[in-house]
Computed example of a mutant assay.
Amino acid sequence: MIKFSFTFFFLAFGLFAQENKIDPEIRKQIEAHNTAFETAFTKGNQSALIKAYTDQSVFMPEHSRQRTGKKSISAFYEQWLSQAKITSYQRAILELQDFGNYVLEIGNFTENLILKGQDPYSYSGKYAVLWQKKKQLLTIVAEIWGSASYFDDKNIPQIDDSDVSQTQEYISSDKLTLEVKERNNTIKRLVQNRQGAEHAKMFMPDAMYLTYYTPILSGEKDITAYFTEHEKPGTLKIEQISIKTSGIINAGKAIVEFGFYNVDWRDGDSNGNVKGKSINIWKRDSKGKLMLFRQMVNHD
């Protein structure tokens, strides 16, 4: 596990707060939603849980397939609540980034739950929500979350994804889409060649990386340390990797990409396949090159 640099984090967070002022009314609405969601989750009020989602919302739960739309998201929560008693749930907003018509919320969560026949379990980690401003109303465009440490699947509800359609690649020949896909091709090459330090250079100096089974990594130092260790040369081989785009939003101040990946790996006699998804926030550096500003990844 990479040691989290708290000193750097608080310095960086102070800079983010100065450079990214959020309308107090927007913050108030998001905080009100989180409070209402917490209450609905613990009381099992399914209709209240899905109030902010739309028929186009992209939903990326950890250890489950990507879903799209209010109906599919409701079906997820129906399964979750049928298997678990939520004794408490809390979100703590870490930052809000205003991209004009969109707001990115990043934070930490703690969910205390009890599965039937099991001991109480505290499921905690980080999350990201992309909100869209629609007059006086905020709606959820996309949401993703993941644990801050490795955990056994038996501790959370087992979700049946058999009725969920496979995520489809976004196909377009416009310049921006091709540019994003080319950046992903670079990442694919670096991962396969185990060039972790080079992979870290795809991020802006003030980036945040929210990956699976790890606390939030903030800034160049922590992100470089993570990738240098995680993708170092050794016995582990990437036999196949695909990194694809399922959607792109040009938010003006940032480019929002929804992504999904598929990796076949081998390490000696061991091998496996990993699938997952991500929300990627790209910004341009001083030379106009797309760089990762915020990224959150989890496994299906």
Rank of each mutant, 00 (worst) to 15 (best):
D119R: 11
S147F: 02
V141Y: 11
Y170D: 08
T87S: 15
S165I: 01
W80Y: 15
S82T: 12
A84Q: 10
A75S: 15
K188G: 07
K154Q: 12
G100N: 08
Y77D: 02
Q166C: 06
K181Y: 12
N193R: 08
Q132T: 11
K154N: 11
Y127V: 00
I156A: 05
E143T: 04
L94Y: 11
Y127A: 02
W131N: 11
Q136I: 13
S162Q: 03
T68C: 02
G69A: 03
Q158H: 15
V164K: 00
F109L: 02
V129Y: 10
E143Y: 06
W145R: 05
K135S: 14
T139V: 15
L113Q: 14
Y102P: 03
S147C: 10
Q192P: 01
Q192D: 04
Q79H: 11
R183N: 13
N112L: 09
K71A: 13
G107I: 13
A142Y: 08
D174A: 08
V180N: 06
D153E: 15
V141D: 15
Y170M: 06
L130P: 11
A128M: 15
R91Q: 12
K70Y: 05
D161I: 08
K181D: 12
K135W: 09
Y150Q: 12
T139C: 12
R91C: 06
V103F: 08
P120I: 04
E182Q: 15
S124G: 07
Q90F: 09
I171L: 12
S74K: 10
G146I: 01
F109C: 01
Y102M: 03
D163Y: 08
D163C: 08
E111T: 09
N193E: 14
S162F: 03
L176S: 07
I156N: 01
D163H: 11
G146K: 00
P120H: 08
D161M: 07
A75R: 09
L113V: 06
K126I: 00
L176G: 07
E111V: 09
D152C: 00
T177F: 04
L104T: 07
V191G: 04
V129E: 12
Q158M: 14
K126T: 01
N112A: 12
D161G: 05
W145H: 13
D153A: 14
S149K: 15
Y102V: 02
Y121D: 01
Q79G: 10
K154A: 13
I73D: 00
N193Y: 04
F99K: 09
S72H: 04
T68S: 01
P157C: 13
P120V: 03
Q136M: 12
K71C: 02
K116S: 14
G146V: 01
K181W: 10
A148L: 03
A92Q: 13
E111F: 04
E143S: 07
